[in-house]
Design a protein around this nucleic acid. Structure first.
Lengths: 114, 114
DNA sequence: GCACTATATTCAGAGTTATGAATATAGTGA
DNA sequence: TCACTATATTCATAACTCTGAATATAGTGC
């Protein structure tokens, strides 16, 4: 994505939307709206390789959308900006987003919930 | 931009943000938030060639963001979705967008205002 | 019909981004 | 220290997008 620090607010704003302009990243954000999640959790839900998930998380993090919290081997990601929810809701006029199917994973978050 | 009709809501949503992920298109939208404008008006403000403005307008139109109204040779564009204002405001945390400089043009809108 | 104007479309090259494979890093427990 | 696990980064290439030049379309008035 290569988002360079820019002073033109239109470029800043465009970069923000670039980060949002990807189905997988939107799915990640939809999951994180329900609470923080570790990479392996996202991996299990989205059925993608870990490296791919990690790449997309980096894009979101560089855009300033994510905060991370380390706990041992795990890194939990969460949303930083409460206004993102408004943006995501307003951008999908009618169709509600499907609930993310949880296929089970071994991360502390999921084990705790079982 | 090649936005294909999709049933996956995440792809639909990503395409929506793709349309917004461009500085010139954001400038066009910022201008149109103040009211409808013809192509030549946008051309004068943004100091770009007409073909380029027209291309970007097509992208926004295909994304469903713009309505058009023909009046003789002129085509006036306006925003369709009132929620777009919310999205644009929420996506730029602190910096206010600069007012578009109006350098004068000969379109009916501008001539009328003088 | 013609000339003129406002807008739209096509096309090609440069530049950017997405994707997956491979590899690297870093934390944990023994 | 080593082996293991969770996550991050690098790299190459295919795919896509941007941009500008040229050209096309369509409305107006004569």
């Amino acid at each position: 994505m290569n988002i360079v620090t820019e002073s033109d607010p239109f470029i800043v704003q465009a970069n923000y939307f670039k980060a949002l302009a990807h189905p997988i990243r939107l799915q990640i954000l939809a999951i994180l709206r329900q609470g923080e999640a570790c990479v392996c959790h996202l991996e299990a839900i989205l059925q993608r390789r870990q490296a791919y998930i990690s790449q997309q998380l980096m894009v979101l993090k560089e855009a300033g959308l994510l905060a991370e919290r380390k706990e041992g081997l795990f890194v939990f990601y969460s949303l930083t900006d409460p206004r993102l929810g408004t943006i995501l809701d307003s951008s999908l006029p009618d169709v509600p987003l499907p609930a993310a199917p949880m296929n089970g994973c071994a991360c502390p978050t999921c084990v705790r919930d079982e």
